[in-house]
Design a protein around this nucleic acid. Structure first.
Lengths: 200, 200
DNA sequence: CCTACCGATCGGTAGG
DNA sequence: CCTACCGATCGGTAGG
């Protein structure tokens, strides 16, 4: 195997192990075992264990950000942007669920500058969602909506999807994206809110 | 300090560290340092590191289950049950956010029978939510609803809350519970679904 | 990529 | 709860 091919294999294996057992729960020897080489030999391909985590999360950040930027930069109306954004998010999760899990969960194990960098990219991702939300509020398409809670609704489902999504489940990626969007957009666009009684 | 008081202190410190750094990212010495004692001395109070994790998650499971059972066993109508259940969930998270985080996140680090036990209790908790949802569907209060996705919506927000909730934020626990319930119940009870166009 | 190894740290224990 | 440890394992390295 070429040196680059081997490196990619290591990243993929690390990705899976980090997502299953956590970064600190995975040892260099767990990774090298699955590669069929000895622990020391890993270091012909990588510099450190944390490098692996950084590369996985940085790639994840890039993929999520690029896919969402495509949406925010489009000329669609807010509701369509929201729908497309949800669809894109699900697609990214579905295409590499291990990387998505590490990006959402394990980035905290990073230290120093690299942790700050990934933290910033995560914040950026959240801001893009907020942008879409804000546009819908401004245009009146998402009426009577507390932005904070709408954001919670969107980010929580987004952050949880990787725990829930089964690549070979009965529903296709598109079916999930559609139903998922429908439920969220229903919450965001409904004018039924006032009909529900809340007072004690 | 009494032996029991000390034990509770250790559990609380472990809870906080596990939630911040993860189970595998926390060492026995991290815990003993914050207690102001030496690593070996911890073992006058506990049997093993995993015991700490087990006790924290088992208590968490008990608290979440008891609070939700109170709701399912009540005679309220489904919509009210849902609202109360969301409120109770938030209350449990707010009252011990570290324990909630460990329960939702770190239980996977358990091994053997104990892991299975906590896994089962988590499944039980999800089933109680499903029960409330199903009752609402049966009674017609939650119309035109894909149960799978409604469950995703509820569990994801529930599972995410502890990442989002700030104990000293601008919103009170009750305000959060109300707005949160409102948003979710809007999604569950809206009949606007068909008005949104989904076809490509 | 292996052989052979390293210092540091891990969870945990015996005896007081 | 401390002193004084222990064997195992950790991430990582030098030399080939």
């Amino acid at each position: 195997m070429s040196k680059i091919g081997r490196r990619e294999e290591i990243l993929q294996i690390a990705s899976r192990l980090f997502s299953q057992k956590g970064y600190h729960g995975t040892t260099i020897r767990n990774i090298s075992d699955e590669c069929g080489i000895l622990a020391g030999s890993l270091y012909a391909h990588i510099n450190s264990k944390e490098d692996l985590l950084y590369e996985i999360t940085a790639r994840g950040a890039k993929t999520f950000l690029n896919s969402l930027r495509k949406v925010t930069e489009s000329k669609l109306e807010p509701k369509e942007k929201m729908r497309l954004a949800l669809r894109e998010h699900i697609k990214v999760v579905a295409e590499d669920i291990d990387a998505a899990t590490v990006f959402f969960h394990e980035w905290k194990a990073l230290t120093g500058e690299r942790r700050q960098e990934i933290q910033q990219k995560r914040d950026e991702y959240e801001k893009l969602w907020e942008e879409i939300l804000q546009a819908g509020i401004n245009s009146g398409e998402f009426p009577k909506l507390d932005k904070k809670f709408a954001k919670l609704l969107i980010l929580s489902t987004g952050n949880y999807l990787y725990q829930w999504y089964k690549p070979n489940g009965e529903l296709s990626q598109e079916e999930i994206a559609d139903q998922f969007s429908q439920l969220i957009l229903t919450a965001l666009t409904s004018n039924k809110v006032d009909e529900i009684e809340w007072k004690e």
